[in-house]
Design a protein around this nucleic acid. Sequence first.
DNA 1: TAAATTAGCACCGGTTTGGTGCTCTTTCAA
DNA 2: TTGAAAGAGCACCAAACCGGTGCTAATTTA
Lengths: 142, 142
Amino acid sequence: MMRLTRRTEYGLMALAWLARAGGRFHSVREITENLDVPRRLLAEILKDLSQAGLVEAVRGPGGGYRLREDPGRLTLGRIVNVLEGPTIFAECYQGDCDLSPRCTIKRGIGEVARRLEAVLEDFTLEEVVHGPAGAPAPSPSS
Amino acid sequence: MMRLTRRTEYGLMALAWLARAGGRFHSVREITENLDVPRRLLAEILKDLSQAGLVEAVRGPGGGYRLREDPGRLTLGRIVNVLEGPTIFAECYQGDCDLSPRCTIKRGIGEVARRLEAVLEDFTLEEVVHGPAGAPAPSPSS
DNA sequence: TAAATTAGCACCGGTTTGGTGCTCTTTCAA
DNA sequence: TTGAAAGAGCACCAAACCGGTGCTAATTTA
């Protein structure tokens, strides 16, 4: 539990990189040259992020991806939600529990789930990029 | 991400039931008669909890399982840790990141992981049993 | 000794996950 | 108008993970 999939890690890395690179559009090729992540896979991931509206895509020469919004406004919760689907902390909690009619944890577990989700909602891409309490971010090597 | 496995849900249900049943030892048979969870699987789960020292086991007739400690002192974090192994939020965070030498999220992601783990450490079995803010727990039907 | 119980281990089928191949569409520039 | 540079879409594969079961000990009580 509580482990990001590779897709999400790759996606975060790309988003973080885009946040620092800023400005113009950056192609998958360019990103993977700076990040070494499997190229085709990252393409798939960015496509999803594009469909979800987190990044903007432009095709053709000079095209690529660009953040659609301010990194300080983009929460980890949204990103994870896009790349891994809606969080289902426990069957119990989602209302369609078929584990047991006599389940003993329905009550408490919902609160735990809410607290966890709140943490993810509380972090923004910007904070992921800059690290805890304003640690200096290395400048993009490109 | 952030989804309990069935093993953990079952384990929690059993622990919660044991917390309420209290006192003597309760066999897997007895527990599953009250919880309908696959018997053999719950046996496996309780064995793990026993090896980890969260419950006490006694074999033979009249034997079974019993909580080894106060439900108010047993954190969700420990339970999840036993049943799902140590939490690895991201490869990055555990020091052995092989995703990229130029990873851009190492810095920030650690803090997120710590916050998430803190939430789990903050909840105890007792709170899971009683639900948010002292909702009345149904008495065991046995 | 017989029955009740946990312990240990191997196994199986289905789903998820990481990753790739191939083709199509869009766009720009020569 | 043509060619190359990009993203879009879809199908596919191998490996890992997960829920669940079977079978056989080992331990304990009566």
